[in-house]
């Protein structure tokens, strides 16, 4: 089974618009996974029916039973996150600061502290407008463990692909290089890097590619807004050659991306010209990788 992960390092390069186009072009041959769980947007373009929804529990949170607490302060002493301040003469766990390590619960002499699984978000299994399935999620506000939710979304997508005999999973990854991205990349068979010819775009492309290299996954690159700065575009082409990254396509700056989005459409449904053709060619290249 192929697992194609689309990432960008930098936000706002057009990653989700491009991923949604591939999902549209892949039609019933693909299963789609939106792993940008922190700010998931792909549903705005592919109209899922939010068919099935489940809570996702992960990570622990300390809770102090005030009846049992003898106010010895040992818990606050060992907490590296200063998550247990004294408020109104009571030791109170601050949920946003608690890391869930459980050290306080172990050290408490009266067993007053319990560690409880947290509901960190929801995941969904939906039918989308192409008639295929998408797994997506919504991380709770300020929640931790986004990496674990990403893994859940990917595993569910894999299970469905296997069940339905689909050969390709398209994954929309998250920005950055931290835990959700690491989680998006694990198990990928091919990575598509979406970038733009700007100083930030290049900087972030290089950093995220360092991460991809650590995983030893083959990568290709799409340069969006390629004509905004030809010199930087050339720099990216040089970088791709030097690193042996497949060049997939240059996409010119085009406000149709936004116009399509405001209509809830992928760009390949909206644009019948050059952009559509570029993305069709790109998808042909990617799906055979």
């Amino acid at each position: 089974m192929k697992e194609i992960v689309i990432i960008s390092g930098k936000g706002g390069t057009g990653k989700t618009s491009i991923t949604a186009s591939f999902a549209y072009l892949g039609d019933k041959d693909v299963i789609v996974a939106d792993c940008d769980v922190d700010a998931a947007d792909m549903h705005l373009l592919v109209q899922p029916d939010w068919g099935k929804s489940e809570n996702f529990h992960s990570g622990l949170l300390a809770k102090i039973d005030q009846e049992k607490c003898i106010k010895c302060g040992k818990c606050a002493e060992v907490c590296r996150w200063n998550a247990i301040p004294v408020i109104d003469k009571k030791y109170i766990v601050q949920p946003l600061d608690c890391e869930g390590c459980g050290y306080c619960a172990i050290i408490c002499p009266t067993d007053a502290i319990s560690m409880n699984l947290q509901n960190v978000g929801n995941w969904f299994l939906s039918n989308i407008k192409t008639g295929t399935k998408m797994v997506h999620a919504k991380l709770g506000i300020g929640a931790e463990n986004s990496g674990k939710l990403v893994a859940k979304v990917k595993n569910e997508a894999k299970a469905i692909a296997e069940k339905e005999g689909k050969e390709i999973i398209i994954v929309d990854g998250s920005p950055g290089i931290g835990c959700p991205v690491v989680s998006s990349l694990s198990g990928a068979t091919y990575v598509v890097l979406v970038t733009e010819p700007s100083v930030s775009g290049i900087h972030d492309l290089k950093r995220v590619y360092e991460l991809v290299k650590k995983f030893g996954i083959k990568a290709g690159c799409i340069i969006n807004k390629a004509d905004i700065n030809m010199e930087k575009s050339n720099d990216i082409h040089e970088f791709l050659k030097a690193e042996n990254i497949d060049f997939i396509a240059d996409i010119p700056y085009n406000e149709n991306f936004t116009k399509a989005m405001t209509m809830g459409k992928t760009i390949v449904e909206f644009d019948n010209g050059k952009i559509k053709q570029i993305l069709e060619n790109s998808w042909e290249k990617i799906k055979t990788k």
């Binding site: 922190d38 950055g176 989005m261 809830g264």
Partner: peptide, 27 residues
Amino acid sequence: PPGTSCPVIEATKDADLILLVTEPTPF
């Protein structure tokens, strides 16, 4: 950083004022 998860909380929780930057699109 972007998003709404733990890195953003850490970066904003002690600030006096937050400026949220957005763009006028569905995303």
